[in-house]
Computed example of a mutant assay.
Amino acid sequence: MGVNISAPYIYVCTRMRVRKAKLLPREEYMRMLNMSVAEITRVIEETEYKQEIDELGTAFKGIDLVEVALSWNLAKEYQKIQEIAPGTLKGFTHAYLRRWDIQNVLTILRGKVQGEKPGKIKEILIPAGSLDKVVLDRLLSEESNERIIELLKGHRMFPVLAREFPAAKESGSFSHMENELYKQFYGEILADAKSGIKGASAFLSYIQLEIDIKNAKTLFRLRVDAQTDEDVRDMFVTGGTLSVTDFTSLDSIRDTNEFIDQLKVNFRNESLHALLDELKGQKGSISDIEVRLTRVQLEQMEKMSKRNPFSIHPILVYLEKKKYEVFNLRALARGKESRLPSEKIAEYLVM
């Protein structure tokens, strides 16, 4: 360990490891696959979500109770970590969590188009970015999406929203706008990560890993959904291992084995290579492939965190693993509510 690591860094990174150790293990999810929504709620109530389940139990029931309790807990946890993160780690954590602004605004816009009630949309918002609960409530109270975007004037997302919304409204699809928002987000946090301030190189290595996995997921999705009207170059996120030329030439390869071999040439990552070898000759669904790529990402993050135990990495590992715990519990509850077979639900779990 270097001599220049301050006590607050050591304290916070140690707290993250303690929090991570409390996350649900794989066996618990396997057990929940055989339970009803009521039984899953009881299990959740015995964990870190107890306070939210107790507080919300009088206002919500069943699947709604699970949804709101999970959202509240995740937002509260993320806000707490932003408060305790010291020094430059606080800035990196704030920057990283701005991705929730994109998710929340898109959830509201899509919900309005689908005619969802504001209360129903609110259940799944995670006020963990720069847009707090008060702002999100204000956006939810608006009747039209045009007004929602108008209210975001001055926010860093506004230029992209204003430019992309008319076409999104006309086509009925927000996917191109979503791509543009994430491209802007990654461009901004890459700039933070390349700023040369203390700890920035550790932040950069993680952002580049995330961009690589995101581009790999997009390439696999394009193979399944070859009918997309979008220019594939618009779906590419710069800043990772691939160039836009690599990305478009990979997309043009039709033979699956050749595509996988070429991906391996482009990505020099052993864990990713092992997964790609497994995918050869397999007919996995796109959701299965995406979950497996996410597992590789989390595995790589763990390795980074062990190599840099007092950096941004332990915080990012915990933020991501906590997010996937909430996603898993939500998928379990929704799957059970929809009477999906257990093996189908299991495909969506990141364990």
Rank of each mutant, 00 (worst) to 15 (best):
G2A: 11
G2F: 13
Y9N: 01
R15D: 03
L23D: 01
P25E: 04
Y29R: 08
E39V: 10
Y49V: 09
Y49Q: 09
K50A: 14
Q51G: 01
Q51R: 13
D54V: 15
I63N: 09
E67L: 12
A69H: 00
K76L: 00
Y78M: 02
K80N: 02
G87K: 02
T88K: 15
T93V: 06
H94G: 00
H94Q: 08
L106P: 02
G111K: 04
G111D: 01
G115N: 00
E123C: 06
I124H: 02
L125W: 01
P127C: 01
A128E: 01
R147Q: 09
R147W: 11
I149T: 09
R156F: 06
E170I: 12
F174V: 13
H176K: 02
E178Y: 02
E188H: 07
A191E: 15
A193R: 00
K194A: 07
Y206D: 06
N215V: 13
A216T: 11
K217T: 05
R223E: 10
V224I: 05
T238L: 09
S249E: 14
S252I: 14
N257T: 03
Q262G: 08
Q262I: 02
Q262T: 12
E270Y: 10
L272N: 08
A274M: 11
K283F: 14
I289P: 15
E290W: 14
V291I: 12
R295I: 02
V296N: 04
M301N: 04
K303L: 05
S305H: 05
K306L: 13
R307C: 03
S311Y: 03
S311T: 14
S311C: 05
H313L: 10
V326R: 08
V326Y: 05
Y348V: 08
